[in-house]
Amino acid sequence: MDLLNALVAILNFVVIPASAYGAQLALGALGVTLIYGILRFSNFAHGDTMAFGTGITILLTWGLQALGISLGPLPSALLALPLAIALTAVLVLVTDRLVYRHYRRVKAAPIVVVMASVGVMFVMNGLTRLLIGVDEIQFADGARFVVSVPQFKAMTGLDEGLALRTTQAITLVLTAAAVWALFAFLNRTRSGKAMRAYADNEDLALLSGIDPERVVRLTWIIATALAVTAGVLYGLDKSFKAFNYFQILLPIFAAAIVGGLGNPLGAVAGGFVIAFSEVALTYPWKKIAEYLGFEPASLLQLLSTEYKFAVSFVILIVVLLVKPTGLFRGKSY
């Protein structure tokens, strides 16, 4: 029986990675849910927007590195992030002008707009491929660890090590800041209130003199900022590979639906629900069981890591069966 070591192992292998991953999913799901709330369609191009923004960030990071500019212990990608967000937002706004605006005007069925977003996904995917290729890219620089395993062991004298990578710490801090800023914006500012009003009831919002096009532009800009941040954090934490950003679409959608589509608070909660379930179900619990004095014969791994997407899917199915509006009552129409 070794409770302390077991706790450290749980922290190291489950809590920290799942928190970082959950934060990344939450940022992605926030973008999806905002677009759903205001523009009323599921944006299939969201993953590729993340990939495109991350691609730009990587190019800018390389530029910074070539100039010899760095943030010291922090990854230089953070310095490139604002400009990458701006560039991606310009592209997304152009897309809205060229593609989505028409469907708003003719009040097309949501599924037609989803189809249009598939077209946008193709274009974005091609642009990302053109820009940076399909290979795996590591672009994290600066210090690797806030706390490394040997440091932690020397500090505490425990057998079990704990590592906190810089990218994980940055993910958590940046996500907290972004979520705080978003909620402050939505709840305190005039523009934020206009957005919520528009999401709540389009006609009433129009009657109160809210400019719908302005609300839509704001939504795209905020969703893009969240998407690119999520993409860069995910890329820093793991690595950048364009196809992974398509695959992450499923957990992001699942997170948004679990929380209730159109509900920002739900999206954050959903992101963490999905991430913790995924990590907890694919982690082999053998080591922890041993610390607790059991002698398990198997690895105690409920699901092999290749099936991690099945976790999001099953959660999605359960939510659809039990409570289609999600945990936080999103839009059910």
Partner: peptide, 14 residues
């Protein structure tokens, strides 16, 4: 809602 089928099928595909 119509897009739930899209998302669920995206999942089953993967």
């Amino acid at each position: 809602r119509s897009d739930y089928l899209a998302i669920a099928t995206l999942g089953i595909g993967e």
